[in-house]
Simulated scan of single mutants.
Amino acid sequence: MTLASTHDALLLDLDGTVWEGGRAVTHAVETLSELDLPRLYVTNNASKAPSVVAQQLNDLGLSTRDADVITSAQAAIMLCAQQIPAGAKVLVLGTESFRVLAEAAGFNVVSSADDKPVAVLHGHNPETGWAQLSEAALAIRAGARYFASNVDSTLPMERGLHIGNGSMVAAVTHATGVVPQVAGKPEPAMFHLAARSIGAKCPLAVGDRLDTDIAGGVAAGMDTLQVITGVSGHWDTIAAPPEWRATYLAADMRALHAEPADLAPHPEAGFSARMSGADIVLEGGHDGADAMAALRTVLSVAWHSDTAFSGTVVAGSPVADTAISSWR
Rank of each mutant, 00 (worst) to 15 (best):
P186G: 03
A171V: 14
A170N: 02
A215W: 05
A148G: 08
V172E: 00
A239Q: 13
I228H: 13
V218Q: 04
E268V: 14
G166F: 04
A273H: 12
V179H: 11
A255E: 07
D236I: 05
M190D: 01
G270V: 10
M253V: 10
A264Y: 11
S167L: 03
A258E: 15
G277D: 12
A215C: 09
A269F: 08
M253S: 08
S272H: 14
S232T: 12
M190A: 03
R274Q: 14
A148N: 07
L210T: 05
A269D: 13
D236Y: 08
A246S: 14
M190E: 01
D211A: 12
P242I: 07
A148Q: 00
E158D: 11
G177V: 01
T237E: 08
L256T: 11
D236T: 06
S167Y: 07
M168C: 07
I163L: 15
Y146C: 02
T237Q: 12
G184M: 00
G166Y: 00
Y146V: 01
M190F: 03
A258R: 14
V227R: 09
A148T: 05
F271G: 09
R159W: 12
G270Y: 10
G199I: 07
P267E: 15
R196C: 05
K185P: 02
A205I: 08
H162G: 00
